[in-house]
Design a protein around this nucleic acid. Structure first.
Lengths: 360, 360
DNA sequence: CTGTTAGCGCTTTCAT
DNA sequence: ATGAAAGCGCTAACAG
């Protein structure tokens, strides 16, 4: 592997000049540039990121903190991040927290040690996380670019990208009410106050708007997984007056809930209407296809990546937020109350239409 | 951030001693160790991976090359890798190739530049890839630990982990034949010769074993995705004598195929039986639940990680391979030929039982 | 068992 | 516009 010295020698210049050529960190005469580039090419020179990182403390790495790459939503978001960052020669270091606050702090520390140039922190899936938030805020104070997905880091003026989940949830409830439902439950994650707070609020807001009183028994919290959805639905079904419709915190949970209904011989949507959240690829393929609130996962990731990139360039720029739209995708797990037929609707295919963003 | 010098000074030893304590790279007296550790703790010293990487050319990073993290199989495999590597303080750099040979070479180069200590290369999804294979073989010659998932790098004696996909595919065909099917199609990826060659061979082998002649028209290749599955099924359905059962190269494709059937008003499994491959989490949740050949994705990743770890420790050890079992999981997308009822089976739940491995 | 001495390959003032 | 020199923080012979 050729070093910067080899190139310098061959081009008849000093190492610093070569460095400048590669980093465009100072004006260099055109002819010198060409000589250097030529020499570099002949030697198949490739800058050593470690050395350059050590000297400049820029590593071209950014850390992406998610709860679990196995969640299709996270995976899609991750691709949005990776694809965007890759174009600027950054690599993405993906770490999973499994929603565990302890693990989250650990991985945060780990990637910090590694000298990443920035962080993208997606849904932390936790309730009281002041300690973590403080850690993150400290990173920011040290000048580390941080962007969050979702605006859960309210204490600080942080760059964030989020979706109008509250509106999405409200739209889902509107839809259910239109179909005649009043007994509408909500299955949230244990830390609904965290990431999913918007969905939670949208649910409540819409219900109140329609003059439906909130019922404690209709708001259950569970694991954000198919198993969790199943378990939560069991509880709902055991209720004396079980709901006729339920909005879930994400599609995985919705799928689990549907499964639970089937086990009890309750057909969806005839016996009960269910709405998911996210619109993961399988939502459209499940049978019946899942009515869900589409979140622009890929876009969310891509925007977040753009935001870190931007902040790394302009560390002192005012903080900015991007807010993307969610969209209710009506498929076939919702039907009018007390009616046999599924709510028919042409939109059986794709989803996740345009997303307008604010500033950025 | 404290440096190794700070710690050395405070502990009254030389930097090299501190280094030795942290890396256990030479015997150090117990009392010295304690002094160093204490000093380090007081200063909150954390070794700088960049500096250490530069000096030692060990970075504690390994590259994981997959086609797409959005594929649930890959995501699960990735978790297996990450979880295992993490325990030894390695981080995993995940890169996607999207099945594109050009991109694959690029990302391979990129992570090589970054100085990863080893590679795990999963299904390259490509046919003629001699150039890439040569690149990889060169890496190995330079002494870089490489382990592949699947044994497609036959030219070299490389460490690999794979599953008995051929047996799995054969078992699927056996199952279909038992149900009375003879007209069994296979939907493969474009590069079925690549990763999926085992499934392909298992299909053919089993068919021949049962005295069923292979038909060109029944072996179609497509994109490895739900869209691809849909498209391929369209072609199959357009055939004058369409198959009564089809084995697909993976669950995504199977789901797409089922979808296509539904669009044509053909019920699965009544009108046609379909078997997937992988047993992704959604396979059990789809309706009807998908009969599929379970691959131990997580285990595959975990084993691969163990193999790189091992090779990094013992660069000259003889190459080893781990072969895990696949398991046919009979759910409800397969039914006897010309019969109305779905093939009932208790096994409606989990899957992917024990997996015995060979050497390792 | 421990210290000394050189770097690893690059960036970055400070000059010119 | 370019060069010289001094590290970035750590490891690795080489001594002893």
């Amino acid at each position: 592997m050729a070093t910067i010295y080899d190139v310098a020698k061959r081009a008849g210049v000093s190492p610093s000049t070569v460095s400048r050529v590669f980093n465009k960190t100072a004006p260099i005469s055109q002819k010198t540039i060409e000589r250097v580039l030529k020499a570099a090419q002949e030697l198949e020179y490739d800058p050593n990121p470690l050395a350059s990182g050590l000297a400049s403390s820029r590593t071209l790495m950014v850390g992406l903190v998610i709860s679990d790459i196995q969640n299709p939503f996270s995976a899609t978001l991750a691709r949005g991040v990776q694809d965007t960052l890759e174009r600027e020669r950054y690599i993405t270091i993906i770490v999973n927290t499994d929603g565990d606050p302890v693990k989250e702090l650990e991985v945060l520390r780990e990637i910090y040690r590694r000298g990443v140039d920035g962080f993208i922190i997606a849904p932390p899936q936790r309730g009281d996380a002041t300690a973590h938030n403080n850690y993150i805020i400290n990173l920011m104070k040290e000048g580390l670019p941080v962007v969050t997905i979702g605006n859960w880091l309210k204490e600080a003026k942080v760059d964030y990208v989020t979706s109008r989940a509250q509106d999405g949830a409200a739209a889902a409830v509107d839809h259910l009410v239109e179909l005649g439902h009043r007994d509408i439950a909500f299955i949230g994650g244990y830390y609904t106050r965290g990431v999913a707070v918007g969905r939670w609020l949208g649910y409540q807001e819409a219900l109140l708007k329609h003059g439906v009183a909130l019922q404690q028994a209709y708001m259950v919290e569970t694991d954000v997984s198919t198993q969790g959805g199943q378990a939560a639905m069991e509880r709902l079904l055991a209720l004396p007056n079980r709901p006729s419709a339920v909005l879930t915190v994400n599609d995985l949970v919705a799928l689990g809930a549907i499964n639970s209904c089937r086990r009890h011989g309750i057909e969806v949507p005839r016996g009960i209407s269910i709405v998911g959240f996210d619109d993961i690829p399988f939502a459209a393929l499940s049978i019946p296809p899942l009515t869900t609130v589409a979140q622009p996962a890929y876009e969310l990731g891509a925007r977040a990546a753009e935001l870190v990139l931007r902040r790394m360039r302009e560390p002192t720029a005012p903080s900015v937020q991007a807010v993307l739209n969610c969209q209710l995708v009506i498929r076939q797990t919702t039907a009018p109350l007390h009616t046999g037929a599924a709510h028919q609707h042409p939109n059986d295919n794709d989803s996740c239409g345009d997303n307008d963003a604010d500033p950025l």
